[in-house]
Design a protein around this nucleic acid. Structure first.
Lengths: 155, 155
DNA sequence: CTCCGTGCAAAAGGTTTGCACTGGT
DNA sequence: ACCAGTGCAAACCTTTTGCACGGAG
């Protein structure tokens, strides 16, 4: 893997936002961010830990969890939740939405102007102040559809 | 609490779908469903357990979890996930979406034709078959906004 | 010197599972 | 009667926390 310009940009953002928030930028946090943006597949904390520990033998799992919290706090990552009980992280800070496969739990990104133009309904009526919108399409990915078809046939 | 017709209808559905699926309808499952539909606030498994155990002293927590799984499997309930680490359940089978408060984690239902008319983007291109769409508005509910304002003032 | 992040290990939930027993159909 | 659901307790897994240590300002 060559030094991806996206990674560089993310690291600069980390630098900038941490300074702004008065928080130190440690090697562990840098490594966590690098591991996160390298993944396009919404990794679990475990997966990121695996990457970080490969780069920084001896890091503790707690530190990775704390680093991820820190990234979320700085707005460089987002937590993603679905039926899996594990939390996944998303290093994509562009506005986008998700496609979740019921079969394998895989999450794919999806961007769409139409979705972004979603009308925010008459909120405020109940005093609710909307900050963000998350749209999740649930379905079956190609691989899982194939697999379930094969399973059905063999039954 | 009088016998809500909605509860009756749900119980009949439970009967019908269980028979169809060849699954027995136990008192525990009936109680779990009743507890679920009584809640309009997306209860946790814990909350449902509390209700069920009040009605059926001696039920085990495992049974309630299994009953909830069963209801989800039968399509009578849905799991709802957000930043809280706990899974919440939704007994509302109408098409609707959610308003999640960042502060207290409370989930409110929201229905809107505009949201239902959401265009499904060019899926299929990647072989993804969409079954469902979930829209979540995240923000701050009135109570939490008030609370945070008060906190800020007292600092 | 002081503060804060780290590592380690243990705790803390929430959820699942193995096994013997009981209850639905 | 049979099979599946239940109760109980232990296991599991992910995430959090307490505490001592160590590096940076």
């Amino acid at each position: 893997m060559r030094s991806d310009p996206g990674v560089e940009k993310s690291l600069q953002e980390l630098e900038r936002r941490s300074a702004e928030a008065g928080q130190p930028v440690t090697v562990q946090r840098r490594a966590a961010l690098r591991a996160l943006v390298r993944h396009l597949d919404h990794p679990t904390a475990e997966a990121i830990y695996a990457d970080v520990v490969a780069e920084l033998p001896g890091v503790s799992k707690a530190t990775v969890y704390r680093a991820l919290d820190n990234l979320v706090e700085l707005g460089l990552a987002r937590k993603v939740h679905h039926q899996d009980s594990v939390t996944r992280y998303d290093g994509n800070s562009e506005r986008h939405h998700h496609l979740v496969c019921r079969g394998c739990g895989r999450i794919e990104d999806i961007a769409s102007d139409a979705l972004d133009a979603l009308p925010v309904p008459e909120l405020g009526r109940n005093g609710f102040e909307v900050h963000d919108v998350f749209i999740t399409f649930q379905g079956i990915c190609r691989d899982c559809r194939r697999a379930s078809r094969a399973r059905r046939r063999s039954k």
